[in-house]
Structures are given as C-alpha cells and as structure tokens.
Design a protein around this nucleic acid. Structure first.
Lengths: 146, 146
DNA sequence: ATTGAAACCAGCAGGTA
DNA sequence: TACCTGCTGGTTTCAAT
C-alpha cells in the first residue's frame, strides 16, 4: 500500500538511482529495487506526468571543452531594467543557470566562459542593466550522494 | 575529417541532444544526426572515458516533493575551519551543490529545504564555521537552450 | 563508420489481487 | 490502483569488415 505522500519509499529509491545515472534501463532499475520493468516504467511515467521529474540532463566538464572560467555573477538590477535583463539572459549561451533571488541583489547567474576576455565581454553587457558582483569558481566540492 | 579539437561538430550535436534528454537512445540519436547507432555509441563512450561527459543526471521539482525553500548560501569561513566545513557539507543532504569561490566569501552553496525551521537549523550549523549570507531563490529564469 | 547477429529492453495488452 | 507476465518489435552490444 502506498502512503498518502506524492512519492513513497519505492519512488525515492527510483529517483535515487536515476540521480546516480539517468540513463539506467527500466529493467536494471527493476532488478535494483525488486520490481518488474513495467511497474518501474509506470512509476516513472507518473512522476514525469506530475512534473516531479522535470528533465533528464547531462553534466559536462567545461574545462575539457576549452572553457577556462566558471563563475557566479550577482546583479543588482537598475530600476525598470529587469525585463530587458531577462531578454539578454535568454540570448547568452554562456549563462547556464539564472535565478531571481532575495536580498540586495536581484539576479543570480552561473556562467561558463572561454577566457578572461570573454568574462569581460559578459560583464560589459550585464553592466548596462545593473551593478554586478562576480565570484570565480575555484573548485566543485559538491557531495557525491545528494 | 575530424578537426584537432577534443570534440568535433558531430560530438557537439550529440551533446546538444543529450542535454535536451539524456535518456535518448543511441538509435534515435543516430537518426537525428545521420549516423549508425554503433558510431554514436563509440563517440559517447569516448567522451565518457575522457571525462567530457561527467554524469547523466536528473532535475527534480523540489516544490512538488515538499521542499518549500531553495536558497544560495555564501560562507566566509573562519580561519582554519575550511576542512571542518567540508566535512559538514558532506554530511548534509540538503546541500545540493557546493563550490569554492574567490572573493570576500570562500564557499558557495545551493540548498533545498523543507521550511523556515529547516533553514534555521542549517544556518545554525554553518555559523559554527563562518559568517553566512543567504539568498532565497524566488524563481528559476534559466534559458531553455543552454 | 558500418554491418549483422545474439542478447536484451521498451512498450503494450491482458490478467491478478 | 499497483503490480505482474508474456509477447513483439526495436535497441544495445560486440565482432568483423
């Protein structure tokens, strides 16, 4: 019997496996959690339909792809410039993540860049819409099991 | 002929498709980029082996899973407390991402929390190792095609 | 990079409790 | 509703080219 929560223990175990490797087959997943492939498939389908699972994505080593700089950029947007900044954000492929946040700054960006000149170009563009604060990323210390 | 870069145009198209849906089959990928499934598989295998592809992961809607707060937390670590903080970070499942950064603060965290009390507990723990600054996430405005 | 063959899996229908 | 089995066509994998 399933409890009344949106996801039960079995769903959590499915999500945990998919976090480790989102390309795992339904059959392998079923072997791990002791369920038939069909049952696994149905549970995953449901989580996709309800929106719990948003996306199956990929993490890349940007250093190996020739991008030497990764950074967080905070923007304290000038009054009335938020919409224009959103439009800029949508045009810049170097911006990998963007969030509206509370606090003295309004927008938080994660960016991936070829070199310092590329960073300078980006900051020049962002400066038109607000004051920027840049933190270069030195290393990723994210725990493995999240 | 392949150029001298670590990845050529075909690899880029493969990565682009995998970013959209990392569960796509080699066969479907082959149909998209006009290559046999085996060739696709070998290219992906190579990118996994070289480390360009780090991980196949999953993005979840944490709101639907009962986590009402997402936030960035910056920590200005007290002198000599960095290692101890790293150990704490590894023990806290609410920390989804962690990076060392340049600037006045030394560590950047992305966290997912049940409620305000949960946030308070986390800040209390982090405070032992440094001064914290918290930005609540209001909304995700990440562009679709990154 | 491709082909071909064996093993394997996804997807679906039909069935159980 | 949640799960299962069994079937069919498609997919993965590997060796040979």
């Amino acid at each position: 019997m399933k409890n009344e929560s949106v996801v039960d223990n079995i769903d959590h175990r499915i999500l945990s496996s998919l976090k480790k490797n989102s390309r795992i087959s339904f059959a392998d997943l079923g072997r791990i959690i002791n369920l038939s492939p069909s049952a696994v498939r149905e549970r995953i389908q449901k989580m996709e339909d309800t929106g719990i699972i948003k996306h199956y994505n990929l993490s890349l080593d940007y250093k190996l792809l020739g991008y030497t700089i990764e950074a967080f950029v905070l923007v304290k947007v000038f009054h009335g410039n938020l919409k224009a900044l959103f439009m800029l954000i949508n045009k810049l492929p170097e911006i990998k993540e963007a969030h509206r946040i509370t606090g003295n700054q309004n927008v938080h960006l994660k960016v991936v860049l070829k070199d310092q000149l590329h960073l300078q170009d980006l900051i020049d563009k962002l400066m038109q819409y607000g004051d920027t604060t840049t933190f270069l990323i030195l290393s990723d210390i994210t725990p493995q099991e999240t």
